[in-house]
Design a protein around this nucleic acid. Structure first.
Lengths: 208, 208
DNA sequence: TGCGCCATAGGTGACATCACCCATGCACGC
DNA sequence: GCGTGCATGGGTGATGTCACCTATGGCGCA
């Protein structure tokens, strides 16, 4: 059986984060059965070090992994991996555990052992969702790159500008000449590659 | 026992949506025990008709209520009730049901019967969260009210403006004179009560 | 029939934005 | 020391924004 749609030009990668050796055989069987490319990591740290940021991935995470608590783990993963969807699972899952997993930002949550078909469908949905948001994620990364090229002063000017302040107001608040504020604004527009302030505000507010 | 913090100047209201007559006695016991003000509705329609939009409320919803399916119900409630938090419950809840409830936007999810202490804590958290977001919700409602006063043409102009187009560009795209587009823009700024286009964009994009 | 609301279009004038130009001073690294 | 980057400040001119004003034509409602 293969739940990975053939239409995809490359198979999605499943990042398998699990510390429990008893589950390793099961995942190998699942991998063979599901047809996804599966990369296993024994810890959150190993994943953060070794994984490459791909565009068509999802994370399947043992929610009882040691180290930081599950909240922190999920948050770190989400921040570092550009909102890659996380599918949680845990042995002997209860309704409460599932709800808390979801509240911490999981895309889906399962009790172990998982029916291969159910996990496959869950992964397919997660990858599809990530795919749909890929354009947004790429744009966000692009904006982030441009933002990092700004100087501190330019960033300050941008902060005020994105709150609706005019150049004159910004100059007053920063205690500098309107001309200097204008100068920073000009460099800002240039570095952010937009034609005017309204486009800058739209770009920044849409990609927060 | 009373899990409602005394610091609140008014007790929060719990909107109890349930169609199952067997649970009515239980909720009356819960109500007495928890100290919240509880208003019961036998259907989603009854809630939408009779409930008043309060600022310190939450919804406790039997996820197996008949009528529209649960997804639609949750979405309707969220839209109409200004993102009031929804706590779901269901008899014989499974991990899957809980996960789906959370995916549909529930704030929390429980298996019935619920421990009074657990439900009380859940309600307290939901109300606290809603309280924290109240300022944002009020501002969003205010923006919404102003938006509804716009004419179709003004709305069109605003759509383009919030995408970063200049007045000249908008005029060209709408096939009207730049002067007419300017006229719509002016009425737009007036109705939305902002000083300039950048403030309008900030207002609209921050309150979507 | 007249009133109000809307879309259309134009005029004028004050001000802001934006793209060029210029310069000085300061810190940091080669 | 000397270039490089940054913050500071200014000048000029084209263009855009914004607040006033005017007017015409359509459409619905009392």
């Amino acid at each position: 059986m293969n739940v990975c749609p053939r239409a995809w030009d490359a198979p999605p990668t499943v990042h398998w984060l699990n510390h429990d050796p008893e589950l390793e055989d099961a995942i190998n069987l699942l991998a063979a059965e599901l047809g996804f490319q599966i990369v296993a990591y024994p810890s959150v740290e190993a994943f953060l070090e070794r994984s490459t940021a791909d565009t068509r991935d999802c994370i399947v995470l043992n929610w009882q992994m040691p180290g930081a608590n599950e909240v922190a783990a999920a948050e770190v993963l989400r921040a570092r991996r550009d909102r890659m969807p996380i599918i949680g699972f845990v042995r002997g899952a209860t309704v409460r555990m599932a709800v808390e997993g979801m509240q911490q930002g999981a895309f889906d949550f399962h009790a172990w052992p998982i029916e291969p078909l159910v996990l496959g469908a869950s992964i397919a949905r997660a990858v599809a969702k990530f795919e749909a948001e890929r354009g947004l994620a790429l744009q966000r990364a692009c904006v982030e790159r441009r933002l990092s090229s700004l100087t501190d002063r330019e960033r300050e000017v941008m902060e005020f500008a994105t709150q609706g302040f005019s150049t004159r107001d910004i100059a007053e608040r920063l205690g500098i000449s309107p001309k200097t504020a204008e100068h920073h604004r000009a460099r800002l527009l240039n570095k952010m590659q937009v034609a005017n302030m309204t486009q800058l505000i739209v770009l920044v507010l849409r990609n927060r």
